[in-house]
């Protein structure tokens, strides 16, 4: 199958203040086929966010390469969108202007980008909040807007860095459902970073389990439970326990 994102022998080394070498990632190899929902699961500090930032082009790899549709990718671009954990909306712009921001950068005319922004505003079920400012929204609503903003750019790939990590458990479950609905509507390749086993099992086609010090891939598991997945499904429980056990050993 054709891969959208290909990561080859990626390595990332940081230097601490006293010049200590910290290996964040070592020999990472990743192949993400078109329209796959991939979850990267791992404990805090295992380098999963760093990996995502390198794929996005926000950080440089120390060695190794990232390919997007066969071409080497080093700088952020419109085709690869990203959703951050929290507080990524421009606080001085209202919801519509935030959603339209990427289109504004692309030089889309104001009426046209507003029309597109409205469409995505409706999609996230916030039609009445177009003129609201980020500080007037709950954390869940802010994340919905952030997702809409990333999607309005119509990216090919969506990178999500613990996008629901700051939300309460209930909102989180709703957002997961919502995200799957959107993903099924407009097929995208999604790389979703999380440290929640449940979230990964609920969402992913495939889970990459990472371990830290230095960050590397520990295991790869395909999730074949049909969607919409029921948490009461015995297979769901088995997978969750298996992953939790692996994570403990990570």
């Amino acid at each position: 199958m054709k891969e959208t994102i290909l990561v080859e022998h990626l390595e990332k080394v940081f230097y601490s203040q006293n010049d200590m070498e910290i290996i964040a990632l070592t020999d990472m190899n990743l192949r993400v086929p078109e329209n796959e929902f991939l979850c990267i699961l791992g404990p805090s500090g295992c380098g999963k966010s760093t990996l995502l930032r390198i794929i996005a082009g926000l950080e440089k790899a120390s060695s190794g390469r990232v390919f997007y549709n066969g071409r080497e990718h080093t700088k952020p671009c419109r085709e690869i969108g990203m959703v951050f954990q929290s507080y990524s909306l421009m606080p001085w712009l209202n919801v519509l202007d935030n959603i339209a921001l990427g289109l504004e950068f692309a030089g889309v005319s104001k009426p046209e980008r507003m029309a597109i922004a409205r469409e995505y505003l409706d999609m996230i079920g916030m039609s009445n909040f177009g003129k609201a400012f980020p500080y007037e929204l709950s954390g869940g609503m802010q994340q919905r807007v952030a997702i809409a903003r990333a999607l309005a750019n119509n990216p090919d790939v969506l990178l999500m860095d613990e996008p629901f990590g700051a939300l309460d458990a209930y909102t989180r479950i709703i957002m997961q459902k919502e995200l799957l609905r959107i993903w099924e509507q407009r097929k995208k390749t999604i790389i979703f970073v999380t440290h929640s086993v449940d979230e990964a099992v609920y969402l992913a086609d495939r889970i990459i389990l990472m371990s830290g010090n230095p960050g590397r891939i520990k295991k790869e598991i395909a999730i074949t439970i049909p969607r919409v997945r029921e948490r009461s499904n015995p297979r769901y429980g088995e997978l969750t326990s298996e992953l939790l056990a692996l994570l403990e050993g990570a």
């Binding site: 930032r53 952020p76 419109r78 969108g81 921001l101 990427g102 504004e104 950068f105 903003r149």
Partner: peptide, 21 residues
């Protein structure tokens, strides 16, 4: 906040956009 700058970059902002917008 760095997140704001990063968000703009992944949305396709040019250096000029980052500066002025």
């Amino acid at each position: 906040r760095q997140t704001l700058i990063d968000s703009a970059r992944v949305l396709g902002a040019s250096e000029k956009d980052i500066f002025f917008k």
